[in-house]
Design a protein around this nucleic acid. Structure first.
Length: 1036
RNA sequence: GGGCGGUUAGCUCAGCUGGUAGAGCGUCUCGCUUACACCGAGAAUGUCGGGGGUUCGAAUCCCUCACCGCCCA
């Protein structure tokens, strides 16, 4: 054997060994009739690459998986990747730009989607290969993808995940769990799509708060009065305006009202009156009502809030309550709108609405563009700047007096300046695009989460699904109990296109075939096409898995229409505009031909795709073949454990819970293990800009996958932050080497000759019996730790056992034993112990252990499939344990004493036993050889302590090491005195407790007994040390 | 502002249902003792964030304050 394990050379070879053997296949190594153990990998982004978070997360999954597989469970670790809509589209577009390829829009949707598939194929291997380098024992043949089987999927991307997603959408739609609506959503102006609340990061940035005057309509005035807490008037003035504070002046253009709190006496006189928005051309100023609503905080700002329903979430709620129209001001890129009728006309309509003279449908409101002509098409921030200038120029900014002193004359100047507060404001940013999110009123699809959240909550409340650590459950409840509707439509091209088709609404209420002759004359036609006709009316829509499905439903709609429309043929076109054109052409043709068979009814598909989390929400059933009733689904669902980051609890875990329960009425997993974010050694988030990113592949290159894995396991205590330190990884690489060298030592001593794995031997020598017991104890610890997901405790137990027990002591004990009569049983014991070490370490360090397994003996199976031991506790031999504790502490004490009084390490000393109980003598005699070797002792005698010796005590024994002339007497005195001081303190503490009648009375009996025994032992030791000190005093 | 978590040796962290503090790394001293210098032997280091309470006894339970982190507003 080499001196160290060559990870770089061996890992690829061992990986291949496992893969060629099909070692990771679902059910591999399962015992007949064994229970299933299944884990779904949190699918990484298909274009992503492995970062430390993945490495950590997947190490834990692999440990669980390998552990269960070795225990004979029917094990499946399901791998796969996520199509990651926005991220993948972004990556692809970026690469296309870098290559000088045409843009997405130039290409068109179909070509672009094909291009993304190319990208997917290209990058898919990256992260999968990286997971394999980490040693992940997924069933790679089953690799899944959240868009497999989607239209346009190339060869090799078959599968039915797409079918599952579409089926779920259709089913949920039919059950009324999914609806479409114009709602305020988080709009990402960079990607020009809606995103969910969870994809928004709120960050505090420096901002400004402007204060403006909204003049009351018709020059009305009121008395504005401020009072203190006692009701005394502190300020009083007659005002003709209401003061409004805003951080976003550009949204003033869309104001629909000003709101004040109903209890706010200052504004009570003007509730119900109108005020003017101080923006836009003077002659077209809009008036808006002053309303009462609970939302405004009377203590904040002026207490009055402008209500811009289409651009603020709070305002939106107020607007809905009060029936205030929400005017959209921006386009998809968050520039001020530049469409629709001129401002003068739009403002006039809005005025009429505010006065209650007319009402508009939602669709009609959306056509009203209230951006003044001079601001149309401007960026939102440019528009803000200009508006502030315009309002200030008009004198409608609230001002404050500023005092300045002229440096030359010393004269005081008082001037009024606009009141602009500079203060930090919370701003929403897109987590991918990093641009400021704009609340935007758009048509979107929503899951009515309120309807499906109940079972997901119950599953955790009743314990059917357990979340670890438990604090995760609290967070889970808190979020789900306050859940908002989930916006699932995204204005992207890469994803599952929503299975909804739209058709023009031909059921104009005033449309009739006057003559009842089935012939459409121009008059009748005009009713269809004219004002209020299908061209402007909202579309009708139907949902089905495919076009054939919706066509049928549209035919049902048409059947209710008069002749000849009822016979129109349903065809699919690109979009609404195409449909309008085509229908017009078809009607025109009908007019001349009067041939109803040639009438067509064009429908178009919703261009939006589904939120990625909607599809990954089906990962547990989708990867197992649902909606088909596959054997895998029967066997591996619900899954056993989900291991994922706590940051993903809402995004994914909660949604999987809701969706699985809604779709198949079962929990997706029995246990959810949540872990923290991996950070650098100082606890900082790893980020490219900080330059503190640790690349797991570089770590694997340098230290080996096993070292990284063991470090991950050791870090995995419950809760908290995970700080990754390369020094620690190096330490665990050393740990692997330590085991390696123990096996190498065994090899040199013929331990492996003719060795085969077998049951524990039954040796006679105490050291051998002891280490077998220690092995059994460690197994219990590891099992218990893993059952409780305490990877850190399992790793710790293994580290202490292999290094602290096997290498530090047992290997040393074996050296003299190999030269004595117990050599054969010692070889057998060592072989067995090292075998167990490899087995127990395998889930944590699969490469080095598999390599050792293969080189050290004749093995029936690969280690990956070797049985996890089941060792009876009877292997723990209490007598052997006591005896070895005596021996090891004695050796430790002798070494320590020697070192402290500077006895040369190379010197072999004599040892005189000055007092021994029978038990101590027996233990001592049986292990003489070990003590001699490890404590560097030459000869052993019994007798009185010679002059000038150092004293060592042990349980039931006292020893002296005669070293007259060699030792530093002062040093020895101070050593003993120090020990005595410590003992005295302990004795005082123990005595104090035992002398306290309350302690003896109320403490449990065994605690009292233990304290008593402890006191006696300490006192005995103190006596021995005092004697030794006395001898030293005599000497000098 | 609301919720969750944390504060233990120089650093990173263990410490379960209360019985009087541990590990790894780092530091220092010594050592080429025939598995291993990715090693061995030895050593030092803590008013367990502050205050109060419950208890015979508190790092551990309760209250409170301070600071830090995360999530949601």
């Amino acid at each position: 054997m080499e001196k160290t394990f060559n990870a770089a050379e061996a890992e690829a070879r061992i990986s291949k060994l496992w893969l060629d053997a099909g070692a990771f296949r679902a059910g591999a190594n399962a015992k007949p009739g064994a229970p299933a153990f299944s884990v779904m990998i949190p699918p990484p982004n298909v274009t992503g690459s492995l970062h430390m978070g993945h490495a950590f997360n997947n190490t834990l999954q692999d440990i669980l998986t390998r552990w269960h597989r070795m225990r004979g469970f029917d094990t499946l670790w399901q791998p796969g990747t996520d199509h990651a809509g926005i991220a993948t589209q972004m990556v692809t577009e970026r690469e296309m730009a870098a290559n000088g390829e045409p843009t997405r829009r130039e290409m068109g949707r179909e070509k672009f989607v094909a291009r993304v598939w190319e990208q997917k194929k290209k990058s898919r291997g990256t992260i999968i290969g990286q997971l394999q380098r980490l040693g992940c024992s997924c069933d790679w043949d089953r690799e899944a993808f959240t868009m497999s089987g989607a239209p346009g999927a190339p060869e090799g991307e078959e599968g039915n995940f797409h079918d599952a997603v579409i089926k779920v959408f259709v089913d949920m739609y039919r059950k009324g769990l999914i609806y479409r609506g114009k709602r305020l959503v988080n709009w990402d102006p960079h990607f020009e799509t809606a995103i969910s609340d969870l994809e928004v990061e709120n960050i505090e940035v420096p901002g400004h708060m402007w204060h403006f005057k909204y003049p009351l309509a018709g020059g009305e005035t009121y008395e504005y009065v401020e009072k203190d807490a006692e009701g005394n008037v502190t300020f009083r003035e007659v005002r003709d305006y209401i003061s409004i504070a805003t951080t976003r002046p550009e949204t003033m253009l869309g104001d629909g009202a000003v709101a004040v709190h109903p209890s706010d006496e200052r504004y009570a006189p003007i509730i119900g009156k109108f005020c003017e928005i101080p923006v836009g051309p003077k002659e077209h100023r809009r008036l808006i009502p002053i309303i009462a609503d609970e939302y405004p905080d009377p203590t904040f700002g002026s207490g009055a809030v402008k209500i811009t329903g289409a651009h603020d979430f709070n305002d939106y709620a107020v607007a809905r309550r009060a029936g205030i129209p929400c005017y959209r001001l921006m386009d998809t890129r968050a520039r001020m709108r530049d469409d629709g009728m001129p401002y003068a006309e739009a403002a006039a309509i809005a005025m009429a609405v505010a006065r209650g003279e007319t009402t508009l449908t939602e669709a009609e409101v959306d056509t009203i563009n209230l951006v003044p002509d001079d601001l149309r098409g401007l960026d939102r921030y440019e528009a803000r700047k200009r508006l502030v200038e315009q309002i200030t120029a008009e004198g409608l900014a609230v001002t404050v007096v500023r005092k300045s002193i002229d440096k030359e004359t010393g004269a005081e100047h008082l001037e009024r300046v606009p009141y602009v507060e500079s203060k930090p404001i919370m701003q929403p940013f897109g987590d991918r695009s990093k641009v400021v999110i704009e609340p935007m009123l758009t048509d979107q699809w929503f899951v009515d989460t309120a309807q499906i959240v109940g079972p997901a909550l119950d599953a955790v409340r009743t314990g059917r699904t357990k979340i670890i650590p438990q604090s995760g459950e609290k967070t889970y409840y808190h979020w789900l109990e306050n859940i908002e509707p989930w916006c699932i439509s995204r204005q992207l091209w890469w994803g599952h296109q929503i299975p909804v088709w739209y058709g023009l609404d031909l059921a104009a209420p005033d449309f009739a075939d006057d003559e009842g002759d089935g012939a459409l004359d121009p008059v009748e036609m005009l009713r269809l096409l004219g004002d209020g006709g299908y061209v402007t009316r909202d579309a009708r829509f139907h949902c089905a898995a495919d076009f054939a499905g919706v066509a049928e439903r549209f035919r049902d709609d048409l059947a209710a229409l008069p002749v000849p429309l009822n016979a129109a043929r349903v065809v699919e076109v690109a979009d609404r505009a195409a449909a309008v054109d085509m229908l017009a052409a078809a009607l025109a043709e009908y007019e001349t031909t009067q041939d109803p068979t040639r009438l067509i009814y064009p429908v178009w598909r919703d261009p939006d795709v589904l939120d990625t989390w909607f599809s990954s929400g089906l990962w547990p059933i989708g990867t197992l073949g649902w909606p088909e009733d596959t054997p895998e689904l029967k066997k591996y669902f619900p899954t056993s454990v989900l291991v994922t980051g706590q940051d993903i609890l809402f995004f994914w875990v909660a949604r999987m819970m809701m969706m699985q329960l809604a779709v198949v009425n079962d929990i997706p997993f029995r246990t959810v293990y949540l872990h923290g974010l991996v950070r650098d050694a100082k606890g900082k988030k790893m980020s490219k800009s900080l330059g503190n990113v640790i690349d797991p592949l570089e770590i694997i290159d340098e230290y080996g996958a096993d070292a990284l894995r063991f470090a991950n396991a050791a870090m995995a205590s419950l809760g908290g932050v995970l700080k990754l330190d390369t020094q620690r990884i190096a330490g665990y690489r050393n740990f692997g080497t330590k085991l390696w060298n123990a096996c190498r030592f065994a090899e040199m001593n013929g331990v492996w000759e003719g060795h085969e794995t077998g049951p524990a031997p039954q040796p006679k020598a105490t050291a051998n019996r002891w280490i077998i017991g220690e092995t059994a104890r460690t197994l219990t610890e590891v099992n218990e730790a893993l059952e409780n997901f305490r990877f850190d405790q399992a790793a710790d137990a293994l580290y202490k056992f292999v290094w602290g027990k096997v290498c530090d002591w047992y290997v040393e004990f074996a050296k003299p034993l190999f030269d004595g009569p117990d050599a054969a049983e010692t070889r057998a014991t060592m072989a067995w112990v090292l075998d167990q070490s490899m087995i127990l370490l395998h889930p944590f360090m699969p490469f080095i252990t598999e390599e050792l397994w293969g080189t050290t003996g004749k093995r029936e199976k690969l280690l990956v499939h070797t049985d996890w031991p089941d060792l009876p506790v009877t292997l723990i031999d209490r007598d052997a344990e006591r005896e070895m504790t005596f021996v090891t502490t004695l050796i430790d004490d002798i070494r320590s004493a020697r070192a402290q009084v500077h006895v040369p390490v190379g010197l072999k000393a004599d040892l005189v036993a000055t007092s021994l109980t029978d038990e101590a003598r027996a233990a001592f005699q049986r292990n003489e050889a070990l003590i001699k070797r490890l404590a560097r002792v030459d000869s052993i005698t019994e007798g009185a302590a010679p002059k000038g010796s150092i004293a060592v005590t042990a349980e039931g024994a006292a020893f002296a090491i005669p070293l007259e002339g060699l030792i530093d007497i002062t040093e020895e005195k101070s050593r003993l005195q120090k020990a005595l001081d410590k003992l005295t303190k302990e004795i005082a503490g123990l005595k104090g407790r035992l002398d306290n009648p309350n302690f003896v009375k109320s403490a449990p009996e065994d605690v009292v007994m233990e304290a008593q025994a402890n006191l006696e032992a300490r006192q005995d030791e103190a006596r021995k040390i005092t004697e030794a000190l006395k001898r030293l005093a005599d000497l000098s």
